[in-house]
Structure formats: structure tokens, C-alpha cells
Simulated assay, not measured.
Amino acid sequence: MENLQSRLDETEANSELSKRSLSPTRSSRLNVSGSSISSHSGSERKRSSSRTSSGKNVKSSNDITSASKIFRNLLILEDDLRHQAHRQKILKWEFTLFLSSLAGVAGFAFYELYFTHEAIVGFYRFILQFLLLFIAVTVALFHLGGEYKRTIVIPRRFFTSTNKGIRQFNVKLVKVHSTWNEQFTDLVRFVSRNVAFINIYILTKTLRLSESNALVTFWRSVTIRSQPRIGAVDVKLVLNPRAFSAEVREGWEIYRDEFWAREGARRRKTRL
């Protein structure tokens, strides 16, 4: 996984350089045209107005800098919570599938032993009884050892427990519900990307074709064009409307969308 914090540092450094290059020079700001002799009242008014404008500029600059730092920390927190939610989701589905498989095998063995019309005897009956006993002991130890709570209950309550912990920061982690078009597009990208990886492996490892071959180049371009969506596509942090104004919440949404748009373009360029 690429370092999000280093990417944020580079982005902020580039934006700071662009601001400095676009800002007027000190000499141009201090350049005053006109007569060398002016009245005392006129000079005082100019000084007061310049002090007022410079104070406003410093204040607005500090506000922008502080807001950028807050948004940067929110983006790092959101990305970390996104990875945690993804790991908890995978953990829950893996052990749910595991328990479902045990339940299916136990149900089949129980049906074969007690509900079939033909009598089950011999080694086959011993195997079925052993399977029932083994599954019963496994499920009992799975619950008594706390693995059921760690792998099923805690991942299921991840959003509730997380939001209780970050409530003091006036933020909330919510799920992003994708539309049918987005889900279909994600499925097409997933299939295309895996088919491209398989074809590249066959062409380069089995057929021993070079990287400059037209087919290899084509399938590599397919992998680039079918990269998964990044950013706030599954979970995201939302600011509490009672603690933050509409301008701040809109600025946070814009900051996040712009960063992930630039990051997605950068990743596609690095894979070219």
C-alpha cells in the first residue's frame, strides 16, 4: 500500500510552491507611483489601509493553512478507518463462510444418520458420527475461546464502536452506497483486470513473449484502464452539522475529492 501521508506532503508542497509563484513580489507590492511629497493625513490613511489589508491577508492565510491541516488529518484518519473496515469485512465473511460450511456438513451427516430410509452401518456410519462430534466440539471451542466474538460480532459492530470512539471529534464514519451503474462498472473492471492479469501471465511466462510485444502492451493498458476506484467509494467521514458550518463541510468534501482525483491520475501515470 502506498504511503498516503507522503503523498499528502508532496501535494501540499506543490500547492505551496504554486501559491508562492502566483503571489506578487514584495517589490511590486511596495512600489508606489506618484509624487514623492504627500500630505501627512494621506500617508497615515495609506499606512492604516495597508496595515488593515495585510492583516486580512495574514488572517485569511492562517485560516486556509489551519483548515488544510485539519482536512489533511481527517483524510489520513478516513483512509486508516477505510482499511480497518475492509479488513473487518473480509474477516467476517471468511469466518461466516467457515461456520456455514461446518453447518452444512453437520446437517448432511445428521440427515444421513437419522432421516434416510436405508440403514447406515459400518465405516461410513463411523465417519458420519465422527464428523458430527468433531463439528460440535469445534463450534463449542470457537464460541468458548472468544473467536466468534472477535471474528463475527466485533466486525459486525465495527461502525457502531468506531463512531462511539470518534464522536468527540464531531465526525462520523458512514457507508457509501453505490448505485447499480457503479456496481456494474466495478464488476466489469474487476473481471477485465483479472482477465488481463491472466493473459499477461500466459503471454510472458508460458509463451515467453517480450514486454514490448503488441499483445502484452494491449493487456497492460487494459489493467491500467480497469483500475478500481479509490477514495470515498465504500466508507467516508462526514462532519457533524451542529459543530461545522456548511462552508467547512463543503470544503472538506471538495478537498477529499480533489486529492483522490489527483492521486488516481498519478497512479495511472506510474503504471504506464
Rank of each mutant, 00 (worst) to 15 (best):
N194L: 07
L209S: 06
L209Y: 11
L187H: 04
V171M: 11
I198C: 02
R189Y: 15
F197P: 00
L209V: 06
A214H: 08
S210A: 03
R193C: 10
T217R: 14
D186P: 00
L207I: 14
V191M: 06
V174C: 00
K175P: 00
N170F: 10
V174Y: 01
N163A: 05
D186N: 01
T206N: 05
V216G: 04
R189G: 09
V176R: 05
S212F: 14
F218H: 13
I198V: 10
F218R: 09
A214F: 08
V176Y: 04
S178H: 04
L215R: 08
N213A: 11
R167Q: 14
A214W: 09
A196K: 12
I202C: 10
G165A: 11
N194D: 04
F184S: 02
K164V: 03
S178W: 01
T179P: 01
R208T: 15
I202S: 13
I198Y: 09
L187W: 12
V188C: 05
K164F: 07
S212L: 14
Q183T: 02
V216N: 07
L203V: 12
K175Y: 05
Q168S: 13
N181D: 00
I200N: 02
V191T: 06
K175L: 07
N194P: 00
E182N: 02
V195S: 06
